[in-house]
Amino acid sequence: MKILLCSPIVPSKELGMSKVLIELSEELQGLGWLCKLLSPTDICPEILSYTGIKYQQYYAEALKNYLQQNASKYDVIDYDHVYLPYLREKFSNSTLFVARSSLLVHHYENFPIPIQNNLKEKISNFIHRISRKAMVQGWIRDAMLTILEADLINVSNDDDQIELVRRGIPPEKIAVVPYGISRNRRLLFDTVSSLPPVQPNVAFVGTFDPRKGSNDFPRIVQYISEAIPNVKFRLIGGRYKTEKEILGHFSQRLRHKIEVIHNFDSEELPLLLTDCSVGIFPSYLEGFGFGVLEMLAASIPVIAYNVPGPPMMLPPEHLVPKGDIKGMSDKVISLLHDQQKLYAARLWAKQQSQQFSWQNIAQITSETYLRCLEFKRTVNKKSPQLK
């Protein structure tokens, strides 16, 4: 079988959206698939000079042109759910077309992202609120067209399926397939002890921006620090901001408690998490929440907002309503105050993470795609005019 995985961003193992495709491709090849990962620069070399809507439009057009010429060479085309808003009849009908959601754009209507908590951003949001709303509506419009015309939709959490069904997509057209950790990285995470570190250290893995809860961090740090004076915080992955910019969100008296690691190789992450006790994940919207899974794999129990993504991995007692800063802080404090409870939670975290392996997920993906492809080709044989 031949599969083409189309990444809308330049592939990198440090970026969640393309990391999924890289690691899934590696595991699918281990199952005997012939996989190609298509970068946007492969089909439109100048695309990096575009941003925003122009990037979306230019990439979608380039992808359409590429697939019209090349789709028939593959058994499966796997592409982002926003970037192919064209009639299915324009492409090879013998190929299975799969629209993949790494972050379902429809959720932006129900899970609005807070703006940065400063005067400049508030003024900018007031000025551009209409254009931003139009941009989101444009994403959703293109996503609905892409999804309606796809043969199958691949989502990574149950909330995505619920939202799509609510919008009229048949549930049998949707496959819920979560993400995982590769065997090689699992070995690195397995070296992390489940015993609680002596120094209480709270971890966060993810970009530091409003969607990930950057506005909420100062008060979370303040609440936990007041209850546990010797606590430290390690923020890992704020690659789009400097350490100075990230620390600027916090009051001067809290900055000495915060360590920022904004650039690192994915293989270094287990070591960076070795001496961390508990994780926080105050994200307002996720496709899955790789940072949650990686912390769990390092024996770190995570407290997160109850929004699409993290509930696929976390029990109700580790979730709080979005924006519930005190609720999140109280749960972290409770774990840090009770070493026996923390140890049990750390053992659970490691065990829970093992349910999410790329090896198993690639097998599920393979079986799902093969089943849908066989059904499609059976229908084509019965209706030759559809070929």
Rank of each mutant, 00 (worst) to 15 (best):
D190Y: 12
R185Q: 11
S124N: 12
A298S: 09
N125S: 05
E46L: 12
S383Q: 15
P270K: 02
P321T: 04
R100C: 04
W358Y: 13
S124V: 08
I325C: 09
D275L: 08
M1I: 06
K232C: 12
V379H: 10
I127Q: 01
A60L: 01
L152Y: 02
Y240Q: 15
R219D: 14
I220M: 08
L293W: 06
P11V: 03
S102Y: 09
Y369H: 02
I303Y: 07
Q137T: 08
K120M: 14
V198D: 15
S251P: 13
M1D: 04
S383N: 15
R100F: 01
T146H: 07
S194N: 11
D80W: 00
G30C: 04
C276K: 02
F217N: 02
H107V: 06
R219P: 13
S299T: 10
V192G: 05
L87P: 13
Q68P: 05
K350Y: 00
L96W: 00
M295W: 00
S25I: 09
I43W: 06
N360F: 09
N306M: 08
K257R: 03
N201I: 11
H262E: 11
I130A: 14
K381W: 06
G206N: 07
P11T: 11
Y240A: 15
P8W: 09
N184D: 15
K64I: 08
R253I: 15
L347F: 06
I174T: 13
G291D: 04
F375H: 15
A175F: 09
I236C: 03
N263G: 09
L38A: 02
L38D: 03
K244W: 07
L148C: 14
I43M: 12
R346H: 10
F281D: 03
I130K: 14
I224V: 15
A344H: 12
P316D: 10
G180S: 07
Q351V: 11
L96V: 01
N154A: 02
E23S: 10
F189Y: 14
P308Q: 10
I228S: 10
D142F: 04
V260L: 08
V231N: 04
S299I: 11
V20R: 07
A345N: 04
K322H: 12
Y83A: 02
